[in-house]
């Protein structure tokens, strides 16, 4: 009897699978479409004949992309941003999360600091103060302007705090007994036990840095320093049709050139597509917002 009740209802199972399959198709369809566009000729794309399979297969879009120095340069800047931003973000996140994960009796000012950091999630200074701070600190136009202002992502800190809290206190006490200080405790006990959350937060950070575009547009004074997504944004925008004049014909031509845009979008997607599967398996254990883990 009991075993019968535990067996999942078939109807639920079927519905679940159908729903998930539909969701998966909805997510994958645009990617496949963009891929198909990038391998098609521009006339085929402009006449809307491309859906899921390349029409009049060609590599000319990719040739165009490799011949566009701006694309390669922007790609390089994005890579640089991730390689610099990820270690800095992770280091600071761990260093902030560790003390805040302690009990109040161990760290008196804990509540104050938790609120101190939480306020930045709830309230933002707005665009102009943000810009002014970055300008007055002299970061404008350097890659650091893209990294330092967001170097302590509070949401990630919270994830990390919650994970650290679940480390059994007995381990900590045992380490103390053996003469470990906070440094040893953090590096030798906490971090090795926190691989899932580190993988998860790293993924968030990588994706966040890779996909950010707005700060690049505002903080870089020259398009040649744009990271990849800012660069893509400039070639993908649609101009306001009410304001179009004959001086904008060149822009209209670019807009109609969908195949090269598709190729650039696809190349921009690749690094994340590649990184995701390796880090994704830590997700279920990595994200625990206050729940008890088995």
């Amino acid at each position: 009897m009991a075993s019968k009740m535990l067996r999942p209802a078939p109807l639920f199972n079927i519905l679940n699978q159908v729903l998930l399959a539909v969701l998966a198709i909805v997510c994958v369809f645009p990617i496949v479409h963009v891929l198909a566009l990038s391998f098609s000729t521009s006339t085929a794309a402009a006449s809307g004949r491309v859906t899921l399979w390349p029409v009049e297969f060609t590599l000319s879009s990719y040739r165009f992309v490799t011949d566009t120095p701006a694309f390669g340069r922007a790609f390089g800047i994005s890579v640089q941003r991730v390689l610099l931003g990820m270690p800095i973000n992770m280091l600071l996140t761990v260093l902030v999360a560790y003390p805040l994960a302690k009990e109040r009796r161990q760290f008196r000012a804990r509540t104050f600091f938790v609120w101190f950091f939480l306020v930045t999630i709830l309230f933002s200074g707005g665009l102009i103060p943000w810009y002014m701070v970055i300008r007055l600190t002299g970061l404008i136009d350097s890659v650091w302007a893209l990294i330092l202002p967001g170097a302590v992502p509070i949401f990630n800190v919270i994830l990390m705090i919650n994970f650290f809290r679940n480390v059994p206190p007995a381990l900590e006490e045992a380490a103390y007994m053996d003469g470990a200080g906070h440094g040893t405790l953090l590096w030798r006990i906490y971090l090795p036990l926190s691989v899932p959350v580190i993988a998860t937060v790293s993924l968030f950070v990588i994706v966040g840095h890779w996909n950010a575009w707005f700060d690049g547009l505002i903080l870089m004074n020259n398009p040649s320093r744009y990271p990849l997504q800012s660069y893509l944004q400039t070639i993908i925008i649609n101009p306001d049709p009410k304001m179009l004049t004959e001086r904008d014909l060149e822009i209209l031509k670019v807009i109609n050139n969908r195949t090269t845009r598709a190729a650039q979008i696809f190349i921009a997607m690749l690094p994340i597509l590649v990184a995701y599967p390796f880090l994704q398996r830590y997700f279920t254990t990595g994200i625990t917002l206050g729940s008890v883990k088995g």
């Binding site: 102009i128 810009y131 300008r135 505002i218 004074n221 020259n222 925008i237």
Partner: peptide, 22 residues
């Protein structure tokens, strides 16, 4: 040129620059 920006972001960037007293 203090800065060069894509046409779509010109207004926003100009506002930020002027507001910050520059």
């Amino acid at each position: 040129y203090t800065w060069v920006v894509d046409a779509s972001q010109y207004e926003q960037k100009l506002n930020a620059t002027i507001m910050s007293g520059e």
